[in-house]
Design a protein around this nucleic acid. Structure first.
Length: 116
DNA sequence: GCCTTGACAATTC
DNA sequence: AGAATTGCCAAGG
């Protein structure tokens, strides 16, 4: 499955009335800390519930008319806000994290990229 | 290959 | 509360 398809799959998994953050989408797609890839995915195709993707803390990242439309769409789905932010404790959606294959001969530790 | 571009995120001041 | 900084990673020029 392509990277793009993975992202799209995660985004499509968010049900009406729920929202997910850019960072969570990336993590679920197998790219923790690469929230910007979610933006890339959102702009790389149609047929996505784009309005259900919000920034950390339930903030709406889109500015201007687009942001207003997003809020309107969410409101129509029953999403509630606390000030300008979505109430994540109520509407936050947690997708099933994409699992990494554990090959018989390879250990994840062999692929460590950073941290420590 | 190197540089720039994003609807970002976490940290720090 | 807001700005600056750094990390992030696929794509396109």
């Amino acid at each position: 499955m392509s990277t793009l398809a993975s992202f799209r799959h995660i985004i499509r998994s968010v049900p009406r009335g729920k929202v997910i953050t850019y960072g969570q989408v990336a993590e679920a797609a197998g790219f923790p800390r690469a929230a910007r890839l979610t933006v890339w995915a959102l702009n790389s195709g149609e047929d996505l519930p784009w309005h259900r993707v919000v920034a950390a803390g339930g903030r709406i990242a889109l500015r201007g008319p687009d942001g207003e439309e997003q809020r309107l769409r969410l409101t129509m789905e029953g999403v509630t806000f606390r000030g300008s932010r979505v109430r994540m404790d109520v509407h936050g959606w947690t997708p099933r994290i994409r699992e990494r294959r554990r090959g018989t001969s390879v250990r994840t530790s062999a692929f460590r990229t950073r941290d420590s």
